[in-house]
Design a protein around this nucleic acid. Structure first.
Lengths: 233, 233
DNA sequence: CACAATAATTTACAGTGTACACAAAAATAT
DNA sequence: ATATTTTTGTGTACACTGTAAATTATTGTG
């Protein structure tokens, strides 16, 4: 599908707007994305900007989608950097890349996983598919490991809680994941811890306690991999 | 120290302002704390409000301190609800109370642990001591368990990362915690996971995946307790 | 070239935080 | 009780925000 000259220019401007918005939110936080400030920086009138994004919220949504995709890209890339059969290493690589991305793009990460911007509510139908993409990477690795008999959950994860299990089985069906309950649960459990570390580091709560956040992270995610019974090669 | 009539009135007004601010942020998010809106609700002029809090930031700081203290109160109370020697149960109770409080006061929790409010930066010298209070509860339990020889970290936590260990030993000294490295590390490691779960639940990311967030939480924190080698009675 | 579509501007309104000058009220000193 | 000082509240003003409407300028197409 080929774009007309006008459509190309339009796309360019939309991209430029997002770029400046990203710059602003990196400098002043996600809630400081101001249409007026963006317009000023571009040498445009505010209202002209509304031709490209009909509202502040629409712009934010676009930024969120971009961020989710960039994160998923990073994860996919990290996964494919490791030999296919080294499931533990693949998982490690993905988790390391996840943190790396968060630290290099703190504003984007906050935009995705932090406080909602005042008055803004992310439309589920847009964000959910974007989250799924990243999660699918993790699920994929665990599923493969499972299929090859390399997944051996530690004792503590042999008997999973009933309601959660039932619900996850539904989810697996619904999204057509090629995976069984155990790896799915381990994936979520690991994700949650990873998320906690990153969130606390991002908001400067852990560094003071932990000293070396990266070492801490590495150690903890190594244990996550071990808990899943995967080996590092 | 007794307060004069004027000082009492002043305190009252300051409290009333915070109460209304809390109401607003519960309804519209932490970034929607507006001095003008508060003044309107109180039948005051905006500028009169400045007599009580010299700026928007000062008010936010006051709210943050209150929130930290309320959370710490809840944790302390939960701890003291369990028999002294049941260290596992005490830890469980504290962690359950932590989540409970977060769910019942989502706005306050976001205020503390979520995105910074645009343009606002919490003054360390005020917030750090407030965080410490809550953390001290957890550390206390682990220290007691350690002293009574009931703390047996699982295999994965026998060899801790060097830099983090060194830093934590410094922290322990600095804050005068009566605790050794292992329980300290386990405390942080558990805290991080707990935080991840709560954060994701609060921003509506887990419920969809997990179905029953409370059951999930209970299961995971039980495993945290087990990892520390503590038993539930 | 004419017409339609698109882009940009001007003007306007309601909201925000905060600084300053001034008036009212209350507490304190004489 | 009166005068003085301290505290509290008001009014005005400025610079900023998002967004709606009407209008003008620019561009692409028949």
């Amino acid at each position: 599908m080929t774009l007309s000259r006008r459509e190309r220019l339009r796309e360019n401007t939309r991209e430029e707007i997002k770029t400046i918005a990203r710059k602003h939110m990196q400098e002043q936080g996600t809630a400081a994305i101001s249409l007026r400030a963006i317009a000023r920086d571009m040498g445009l009138t505010v209202t002209a900007l509304y031709r490209y994004y009909p509202s502040h919220d629409e712009l934010v949504t676009a930024l969120i989608v971009d961020a989710f995709n960039a994160l998923a890209d990073t994860m996919e890339q990290a996964d494919s950097s490791q030999p296919r059969e080294s499931y533990g290493n693949r998982l490690m690589a993905v988790m390391l890349a996840y943190r790396e991305w968060a630290m290099q793009n703190p504003a984007d990460f906050q935009l995705i996983y932090g406080n909602p911007i005042p008055g803004y509510h992310a439309p589920r139908e847009i964000t959910v598919p974007a989250v799924i993409r990243g999660f699918r990477v993790v699920v994929g690795i665990l599923a493969e490991a499972m299929a090859n008999g390399e997944l051996k959950p530690s004792a503590d994860y042999q008997h999973l809680p009933p309601h959660v299990s039932a619900h996850m089985i539904e989810i697996i069906k619904h999204y057509g994941y090629n995976i069984s309950l155990e790896p799915m649960y381990l994936g979520v459990s690991g994700w949650v811890k990873m998320h906690g570390m990153i969130m606390l580091e991002l908001f400067h709560h852990t560094p003071a306690v932990v000293g070396d956040p990266e070492e801490f992270y590495r150690f903890e995610i190594t244990n996550i991999v071990k808990t899943a019974g995967l080996t590092l090669k």
